[in-house]
Design a protein around this nucleic acid. Structure first.
Length: 422
DNA sequence: CACCGTCAAGTCGCA
DNA sequence: TGCGACTTGACGGTG
């Protein structure tokens, strides 16, 4: 059982992907951006290795405008060696990468041009994973597409078009239930004809259940398990929690520990990879991995605490003290309580007094090493913040810059600078 | 720095 | 008929 996250990475430098707009397109810029993005991917993979995250979805934006007609540049040849090296890094660390084309890739469209463009886009995704030399457990996740007032006909069109796809795409394609059109039963009926492995998505299932829905989600997961063959790797599912309400499929900021464990306890005996779809990405992935770890050692929570502590302190010194007390139990730390306290801090708004306290606390790192002018600037910013003339992110950025200048690693790793609050 | 419209692309549902 | 949501940030210009 491995738990991972999708595309974006929070909390470390040089992990952001750049993009390219049509009007700026040039070969030079295109290659420059790929170069940047592959470096970012390498950083992310290294982070994942360090944090024992074994499942990761690579953003489709890694190669900008990859399947657009304007782009006739053979990036997969130009970067062949680089991609191979990256793939080796991924494989040597047993990381399972995947990709997920967006809402524009619709192979069952009634418009031929849309189908053609979609197939071209799938070719791009397959080409990228092939270039990494990842095996066929590295998948491309796709939704079924549109309904066009006739679901049966549209499913038939999906199957017909699927049959025409290149083998390199078929090797990797898997299909997922979506939040409004194709429920898990529909997707499984397509499996019956095509043998495409099925990804179960819990939130989509909740929003778009089958008409006759007597089975629990865990029974559906069990049925989907049968669609995965040896060569496809472990069964994959998507797990997310809804933000605020049931009205739409928007994902929550973080994965709530208690809710996740309730779900996990029903599948923990199966060998499943879980892709989290959540806004705080790697943060929740680490969290969920620790939540399910047997014989969790307190050192892992202390590492987590090092990252979260200044954020917590900035919102509530009471919560800060509670967590410190909790971590004094070295032999048997209460991981659920730990995260529920972090969660309450993430939910609560910023209080100015606590922030001022935190900022002064952080200044302690620089007190002796900062120059006179840096000190003056700091004091001026702090006064500005107290008087509502400067925003919190303004002063956070300044402290971050100082951390960078003086190489204060402990602060550079802190989520204080990445989790918002004005 | 803050703010905001825009970005290659499809489909659906609602006003 | 046209626009917002989905999902999602990054870019680029303005103030």
């Amino acid at each position: 059982m491995s738990i991972g996250y999708a595309c974006i990475h929070l909390g470390s430098n040089n992990t952001k992907l750049s993009t390219l707009y049509l009007k700026n397109f040039s070969k030079e810029k295109f290659l420059l951006i790929i170069d940047n993005n592959l470096n970012a991917l390498e950083q992310i993979i290294n982070y994942n290795v360090k944090n024992d995250i074994k499942v990761f979805r690579i953003s489709s934006d890694i190669i900008p405008l990859a399947s657009h007609p304007i782009n006739d540049i053979l990036w997969y040849e130009i970067y062949e060696e680089r991609l191979k090296t990256l793939g080796t890094l991924i494989k040597e660390n047993n990381i399972r990468v995947s990709m997920h084309p967006g809402q524009y890739t619709v192979i069952n469209s009634i418009h031929d041009s849309v189908v053609e463009k979609s197939i071209e886009d799938l070719r791009y995704h397959a080409r990228f994973l092939d270039a990494l030399t990842c095996d066929y457990s590295s998948k491309i996740v796709l939704h079924i597409g549109g309904v066009y007032n006739d679901k049966n006909l549209s499913m038939e069109r999906f199957i017909g078009n699927y049959n025409t796809l290149d083998q390199s795409i078929k090797n990797r394609l898997i299909i997922e239930n979506d939040d409004k059109s194709y429920n898990i039963e529909d997707v499984l009926s397509i499996f019956k004809v095509t043998n495409i492995p099925v990804v179960f998505d819990n939130l989509h299932h909740e929003l778009n259940p089958p008409l006759d829905n007597n089975l629990s989600q865990f029974e559906w997961i069990e049925i989907c398990n049968k669609t995965w063959k040896e060569i496809d790797g472990k069964q994959k599912i998507h797990y997310s929690q809804s933000a605020n309400n049931y009205k739409n499929g928007a994902h929550s900021q973080y994965i709530k520990a208690s809710t996740f464990l309730e779900f996990y306890n029903n599948i923990k005996n199966k060998n499943i990879d879980i892709m989290l779809e959540v806004k705080d990405k790697n943060l929740s992935a680490i969290k969920c991995n620790l939540l399910i770890m047997e014989n969790l050692r307190v050192i892992y929570l202390e590492r987590e605490w090092a990252k979260y502590k200044y954020h917590v302190l900035g919102n509530s010194s009471k919560t800060y003290q509670e967590i410190r007390t909790l971590l004094k139990n070295k032999s048997n730390p209460d991981v659920i309580k730990f995260y529920s306290l972090i969660e309450s801090s993430l939910d609560s708004g910023v209080t100015k007094n606590s922030q001022v306290n935190t900022i002064q606390h952080l200044w302690g790192y620089f007190k002796k090493i900062a120059s006179k002018s840096e000190k003056n600037r700091f004091l001026k910013l702090l006064e500005g913040y107290k008087e509502d003339k400067k925003t919190l992110s303004f002063i956070k950025n300044y402290i971050y810059k100082l951390s960078y200048k003086y190489s204060i690693e402990y602060l550079l790793d802190s989520l204080y600078f990445y989790i918002n609050g004005n």
